[in-house]
Simulated assay, not measured.
Amino acid sequence: MQRRDFLKALGAGTLAAAGSSLPRIGHAAGMVPVRLQLKWFPQAQFAGYFVAKGKGFYAAEGLDVTLLPIGEQSPIQTVVAGAADFGTTWITDLLTASSRGLPVVEIAQIFQKSGFTLTTLKKYGIEKPADFKGHTVGIWPGGNAYPALAFFKKYGLTTSLEPGVGNPDVKLVTYGFDPKLVFPDKAQVVSAMIYNEVDQIINMGYPLDTLKIFDLADYGINLLEDNMFTTQNVLNEGNFKGSGISGKEVGARLLRASLKGWDWAVKHQAEAVSMVLSQCGPYCKGAGKAASGLKHQTWMMAHIAQLYEAGPTLKGDAGLLEKSELDNNIALLNSLKVLKTQPAKNVAEWSVWEMATGKRVPWKV
């Protein structure tokens, strides 16, 4: 169904009642089981979802949501295989999967600013992009390296990953997400999420004032991270798991409750961290000799809040993937020649966000 037909069928009166636009499923009708695949281990990166579950926001929408951790595997795999109904992932994962023909569809953009950094020690004298020349940089495997590669390409720096480059400007080494594996002995610079690995580096004994942090979003490399996605099959489902409601309605309920959880978590960060600490177990404290669960999750929550409260969220449109940002992200990946073909035209489905919020996107879909 096209977006306009869908909105017409939904009804103008329904759209006007934002926040209560969908008929609720009462307990008598039973709760609808939904599996939400998280991109990593339990931590404050997913605080909004833990809050939505713990505060009963999902239950209020008639959903019995199970939050599934995954570690270093791809959420794309579990959602496409049907082991999960919805998932969170980075937009680069989503776009590359779509370009390979996988039927993945983004329904919301939770983080509106990239938290990807390249972090080094001030003593190395790397003050601007050109100064990376002659240094070794630690990157993550697979699609997690794309922001760093896009940064180097934008600033005309060749890397050791490029075929046929005999004397690259930057040597790249791959490391498995724990900076102490390579930093600073094997790599003077490392990929580091502002909300996670930067704090791990601090806990390794390098105070914040000794670090030089290149926030790639500030350099025009805003490859967006955590979104919410599903498959076209789920969205096309007219009777999701025998519940009597459609996959799109389930997605809208899930999204609305999740955004409510995120709004609450950002406004009540200490309480949100407490809820996360009850879930994250051995993954609470990150890494480093000075690490502690409370400190690390508090750091993470504060920086996650900054990624959430950016872009459309500041305009009252939390969860909205702006078409211009989608186009920019596709263009960046095209510049790296990582897309086998162009992502599907329906790689983003804005009607779910419209159902969840009672608003309409300001562009033609």
Score class of each variant (00 low, 15 high):
Val347Thr: 15
Gly358Leu: 15
Thr313Leu: 07
His303Ser: 08
Ala310Ile: 03
Thr136Ser: 12
Phe132Ile: 09
Gly176Pro: 03
Pro312Trp: 02
Gln109Lys: 13
Gly286His: 01
Tyr124Thr: 12
Ala12Asn: 08
Val173His: 15
Trp262Arg: 11
Leu149Phe: 02
Ser98Leu: 14
Thr120Asp: 14
Tyr283Ile: 07
Gln37His: 14
Lys154Asp: 06
Lys289Trp: 05
Leu38Ala: 06
Ser258Lys: 02
Thr159Lys: 04
His303Val: 01
Lys248Leu: 09
Arg3Lys: 05
Gly125Val: 06
Thr120Ser: 11
Tyr175Val: 06
Gly247Phe: 04
Ser246Leu: 15
Phe132Ala: 09
Thr298Leu: 01
Lys128Ser: 15
Ala81Gly: 04
Leu94Cys: 08
Leu336Lys: 03
Phe6Trp: 12
Val189Trp: 01
Leu149Trp: 00
Lys55Gly: 08
Asp215Asn: 14
Leu10Phe: 13
Ala145Arg: 04
Met1Asp: 15
Met204Arg: 01
Leu294Ala: 02
Phe111Ala: 03
Leu7Tyr: 03
Leu157Glu: 11
Gly242Leu: 00
Ser20Gly: 15
His268Tyr: 00
Pro141Trp: 13
Tyr146Ser: 05
Lys340Asn: 13
Ser258Gln: 13
Ile107Phe: 02
Phe229Gly: 04
Tyr308Trp: 06
Thr357Gln: 13
Val338Gly: 14
Val105Asp: 05
Leu259Glu: 08
Asn144Trp: 08
Phe132Gln: 11
Pro75Leu: 09
Thr357His: 12
Ala291Pro: 06
Ala310Gly: 03
Gly125Gln: 02
Ile139Gly: 07
Gln37Leu: 09
Ile76Asn: 13
Gly288Cys: 03
Gly288Tyr: 01
Val276Gly: 00
Lys248Val: 15
Thr120Trp: 09
